[in-house]
Simulated assay, not measured.
Amino acid sequence: MATILNIETSTKNCSVSIAKDGVQLCLVEENEESFAHGEKLNQFIEWCLDGAEIKLKDLDAICVSKGPGSYTGLRIGVSSAKGFAYGLDLPLLAINSLQILAESQINQGYDLIIPMIDARRMEVYTAQYDNFGKQLTDTEAKVIDETSFEELQGKKIVFVGDGAEKCEETLRHLDATFIQIFPSAKYMCQLAEDKFNQNLVEDVAYFEPYYLKDFVAGKKKSE
Protein backbone atom coordinates (compact mmCIF):
# COMPACT_ATOMS: atom_id res chain seq x y z
CA MET A 1 0.00 0.00 0.00
CA ALA A 2 2.02 2.95 -1.26
CA THR A 3 2.03 6.22 -3.15
CA ILE A 4 4.76 5.98 -5.78
CA LEU A 5 6.28 8.39 -8.29
CA ASN A 6 7.11 6.53 -11.52
CA ILE A 7 9.66 7.85 -14.05
CA GLU A 8 10.13 6.39 -17.55
CA THR A 9 12.74 7.90 -19.90
CA SER A 10 14.24 4.92 -21.74
CA THR A 11 13.11 6.15 -25.19
CA LYS A 12 12.17 9.53 -26.66
CA ASN A 13 9.02 9.40 -24.52
CA CYS A 14 9.43 11.41 -21.31
CA SER A 15 6.81 9.93 -19.00
CA VAL A 16 5.84 10.44 -15.35
CA SER A 17 2.99 8.95 -13.32
CA ILE A 18 1.88 8.87 -9.71
CA ALA A 19 -0.01 5.87 -8.40
CA LYS A 20 -1.57 4.99 -5.07
CA ASP A 21 -1.92 1.30 -4.20
CA GLY A 22 -1.16 0.44 -7.85
CA VAL A 23 -3.88 2.73 -9.26
CA GLN A 24 -2.79 5.65 -11.42
CA LEU A 25 -3.67 9.09 -10.09
CA CYS A 26 -2.02 11.20 -12.77
CA LEU A 27 0.07 10.82 -15.93
CA VAL A 28 2.16 13.42 -17.76
CA GLU A 29 4.13 12.43 -20.85
CA GLU A 30 5.35 13.66 -24.21
CA ASN A 31 7.52 12.15 -26.92
CA GLU A 32 9.57 14.08 -29.41
CA GLU A 33 12.65 13.52 -31.51
CA SER A 34 14.78 16.05 -29.64
CA PHE A 35 15.02 13.90 -26.47
CA ALA A 36 14.49 17.01 -24.30
CA HIS A 37 14.12 14.94 -21.13
CA GLY A 38 16.63 17.04 -19.21
CA GLU A 39 14.54 20.16 -19.81
CA LYS A 40 11.12 18.63 -19.18
CA LEU A 41 11.36 15.88 -16.59
CA ASN A 42 11.26 18.01 -13.44
CA GLN A 43 8.42 20.12 -14.86
CA PHE A 44 6.46 16.95 -15.65
CA ILE A 45 6.99 15.70 -12.09
CA GLU A 46 5.65 19.01 -10.73
CA TRP A 47 2.61 18.82 -13.00
CA CYS A 48 1.99 15.21 -12.01
CA LEU A 49 2.13 16.06 -8.30
CA ASP A 50 -0.31 18.91 -8.88
CA GLY A 51 -2.61 16.68 -10.94
CA ALA A 52 -2.62 13.98 -8.28
CA GLU A 53 -3.13 16.65 -5.60
CA ILE A 54 -0.29 15.37 -3.44
CA LYS A 55 2.99 16.74 -2.11
CA LEU A 56 6.48 15.25 -2.25
CA LYS A 57 6.16 14.43 1.46
CA ASP A 58 3.20 12.15 0.64
CA LEU A 59 5.33 9.82 -1.50
CA ASP A 60 6.36 6.42 -0.18
CA ALA A 61 8.82 5.46 -2.95
CA ILE A 62 10.39 6.45 -6.26
CA CYS A 63 10.36 4.01 -9.19
CA VAL A 64 12.38 4.37 -12.39
CA SER A 65 12.75 2.43 -15.62
CA LYS A 66 16.29 1.07 -15.50
CA GLY A 67 16.77 0.19 -19.17
CA PRO A 68 17.71 -0.97 -21.66
CA GLY A 69 17.14 1.99 -23.93
CA SER A 70 18.55 5.40 -24.76
CA TYR A 71 21.81 6.09 -22.94
CA THR A 72 20.98 9.77 -22.47
CA GLY A 73 17.36 9.18 -21.52
CA LEU A 74 18.22 6.54 -18.95
CA ARG A 75 20.98 8.64 -17.43
CA ILE A 76 18.60 11.58 -16.96
CA GLY A 77 15.76 9.50 -15.55
CA VAL A 78 17.92 7.50 -13.14
CA SER A 79 19.80 10.59 -11.94
CA SER A 80 16.53 12.33 -11.18
CA ALA A 81 15.04 9.29 -9.45
CA LYS A 82 18.16 8.83 -7.29
CA GLY A 83 18.09 12.50 -6.38
CA PHE A 84 14.50 12.35 -5.20
CA ALA A 85 15.04 9.06 -3.37
CA TYR A 86 18.13 10.36 -1.58
CA GLY A 87 16.74 13.82 -0.82
CA LEU A 88 13.42 12.51 0.50
CA ASP A 89 14.95 9.43 2.16
CA LEU A 90 12.65 7.12 0.17
CA PRO A 91 13.24 3.63 -1.23
CA LEU A 92 14.26 3.43 -4.89
CA LEU A 93 12.59 0.83 -7.11
CA ALA A 94 13.62 -0.06 -10.67
CA ILE A 95 11.86 -1.90 -13.50
CA ASN A 96 13.23 -3.30 -16.77
CA SER A 97 11.98 -1.10 -19.63
CA LEU A 98 10.98 -4.19 -21.61
CA GLN A 99 8.82 -5.41 -18.76
CA ILE A 100 7.03 -2.07 -18.80
CA LEU A 101 6.18 -2.62 -22.47
CA ALA A 102 5.12 -6.21 -21.81
CA GLU A 103 2.78 -4.98 -19.07
CA SER A 104 0.76 -3.14 -21.73
CA GLN A 105 -0.22 -6.45 -23.38
CA ILE A 106 -0.76 -8.89 -20.51
CA ASN A 107 -3.91 -11.01 -20.40
CA GLN A 108 -4.72 -10.27 -24.05
CA GLY A 109 -4.63 -13.91 -25.15
CA TYR A 110 -1.17 -13.98 -26.75
CA ASP A 111 1.14 -16.96 -26.38
CA LEU A 112 4.12 -14.62 -26.24
CA ILE A 113 4.66 -10.93 -25.65
CA ILE A 114 7.90 -9.72 -27.23
CA PRO A 115 8.73 -6.09 -26.42
CA MET A 116 11.19 -4.31 -28.68
CA ILE A 117 13.03 -1.08 -27.97
CA ASP A 118 14.71 0.42 -31.00
CA ALA A 119 18.50 0.27 -30.88
CA ARG A 120 20.03 1.02 -34.30
CA ARG A 121 19.32 -0.07 -37.84
CA MET A 122 17.73 -3.53 -37.52
CA GLU A 123 18.82 -4.05 -33.93
CA VAL A 124 16.45 -4.02 -30.97
CA TYR A 125 16.58 -4.62 -27.25
CA THR A 126 14.20 -7.48 -26.58
CA ALA A 127 13.13 -10.43 -24.42
CA GLN A 128 10.19 -12.82 -24.36
CA TYR A 129 7.32 -12.75 -21.84
CA ASP A 130 4.29 -14.95 -21.36
CA ASN A 131 0.68 -13.76 -21.37
CA PHE A 132 0.90 -12.89 -17.66
CA GLY A 133 4.06 -10.79 -17.95
CA LYS A 134 6.54 -13.39 -16.69
CA GLN A 135 9.94 -13.03 -18.35
CA LEU A 136 10.96 -16.20 -20.21
CA THR A 137 14.27 -15.23 -21.83
CA ASP A 138 17.19 -12.97 -20.99
CA THR A 139 17.22 -9.37 -22.12
CA GLU A 140 19.41 -9.02 -25.20
CA ALA A 141 20.41 -6.76 -28.06
CA LYS A 142 19.25 -8.66 -31.15
CA VAL A 143 19.77 -8.00 -34.86
CA ILE A 144 16.52 -8.87 -36.66
CA ASP A 145 16.61 -10.77 -39.96
CA GLU A 146 14.37 -13.21 -41.85
CA THR A 147 15.39 -16.12 -39.59
CA SER A 148 14.71 -14.33 -36.30
CA PHE A 149 12.18 -16.07 -34.04
CA GLU A 150 11.59 -18.80 -36.65
CA GLU A 151 11.41 -21.31 -33.80
CA LEU A 152 8.23 -19.54 -32.65
CA GLN A 153 6.20 -20.23 -35.80
CA GLY A 154 2.68 -21.33 -34.91
CA LYS A 155 2.51 -19.28 -31.74
CA LYS A 156 0.32 -16.21 -31.36
CA ILE A 157 2.77 -13.38 -30.78
CA VAL A 158 2.59 -9.65 -30.18
CA PHE A 159 5.65 -7.49 -30.83
CA VAL A 160 5.28 -4.24 -28.93
CA GLY A 161 7.44 -1.15 -28.62
CA ASP A 162 9.11 1.57 -30.66
CA GLY A 163 11.20 -1.10 -32.42
CA ALA A 164 8.24 -3.23 -33.53
CA GLU A 165 7.16 -1.42 -36.68
CA LYS A 166 10.54 -1.53 -38.41
CA CYS A 167 10.63 -5.32 -37.96
CA GLU A 168 7.15 -6.06 -39.31
CA GLU A 169 8.15 -6.67 -42.93
CA THR A 170 11.14 -8.83 -41.94
CA LEU A 171 9.06 -10.96 -39.56
CA ARG A 172 6.02 -11.42 -41.79
CA HIS A 173 6.50 -15.21 -41.70
CA LEU A 174 5.15 -15.22 -38.12
CA ASP A 175 1.59 -15.16 -36.80
CA ALA A 176 2.18 -11.86 -35.11
CA THR A 177 0.66 -8.51 -34.24
CA PHE A 178 2.91 -5.44 -34.28
CA ILE A 179 2.11 -2.55 -31.95
CA GLN A 180 4.25 0.57 -32.16
CA ILE A 181 4.15 2.29 -28.76
CA PHE A 182 6.65 3.72 -26.28
CA PRO A 183 7.30 2.56 -22.75
CA SER A 184 5.09 4.65 -20.49
CA ALA A 185 4.93 5.36 -16.77
CA LYS A 186 1.24 4.40 -16.87
CA TYR A 187 2.30 0.76 -17.22
CA MET A 188 4.60 1.01 -14.18
CA CYS A 189 1.91 1.54 -11.54
CA GLN A 190 1.12 -2.06 -10.55
CA LEU A 191 4.66 -3.27 -11.22
CA ALA A 192 6.04 -0.65 -8.84
CA GLU A 193 3.44 -1.48 -6.20
CA ASP A 194 4.39 -5.16 -6.38
CA LYS A 195 8.09 -4.36 -5.96
CA PHE A 196 7.35 -2.08 -3.02
CA ASN A 197 5.27 -4.75 -1.28
CA GLN A 198 8.06 -7.31 -1.82
CA ASN A 199 10.69 -4.81 -0.59
CA LEU A 200 12.67 -5.18 -3.83
CA VAL A 201 14.58 -1.94 -3.43
CA GLU A 202 17.80 -0.69 -5.00
CA ASP A 203 20.89 0.74 -3.31
CA VAL A 204 20.55 4.45 -4.09
CA ALA A 205 24.28 5.09 -3.82
CA TYR A 206 25.36 2.40 -6.27
CA PHE A 207 22.40 1.92 -8.61
CA GLU A 208 23.18 2.51 -12.30
CA PRO A 209 21.05 2.24 -15.46
CA TYR A 210 21.00 -1.07 -17.31
CA TYR A 211 22.54 0.13 -20.58
CA LEU A 212 23.08 -3.44 -21.92
CA LYS A 213 25.57 -2.09 -24.45
CA ASP A 214 28.46 0.33 -23.99
CA PHE A 215 27.77 3.88 -25.07
CA VAL A 216 29.49 4.81 -28.32
CA ALA A 217 29.59 8.51 -29.18
CA GLY A 218 29.24 9.41 -32.82
CA LYS A 219 32.10 11.22 -34.49
CA LYS A 220 31.56 14.80 -35.46
CA LYS A 221 31.31 15.20 -39.21
CA SER A 222 34.04 17.20 -40.92
CA GLU A 223 32.94 20.59 -42.17
Rank of each mutant, 00 (worst) to 15 (best):
Q135G: 02
L5E: 11
K66A: 03
F182W: 11
Y210R: 05
T126V: 04
A102G: 03
C189W: 01
E8Q: 10
N107G: 03
T11V: 09
A2V: 08
A19Q: 06
A52T: 06
I7A: 03
N31S: 14
Q180M: 13
M116V: 01
S79F: 03
V204Y: 04
V158F: 01
K12N: 12
G51R: 05
A85C: 13
S15N: 04
K155L: 05
D21L: 06
E33C: 02
M122P: 00
Q108R: 12
G83S: 15
Q153M: 10
L152F: 11
A205C: 00
K221Q: 15
V201K: 10
C167K: 06
S10N: 06
N107A: 03
A81R: 07
Q108L: 11
V216Y: 09
L56S: 03
K134Q: 15
V28D: 02
R172I: 09
N199Y: 06
N107P: 07
N199S: 12
K82L: 05
C26R: 03
H37M: 11
Q105H: 04
C63S: 15
A81L: 09
K219G: 12
K213A: 01
I4E: 14
E30Q: 11
C14S: 09
G133R: 05
Y211L: 00
D138H: 09
V158I: 08
N13Y: 06
M188Q: 10
K156D: 14
V201A: 04
E30K: 06
L200M: 11
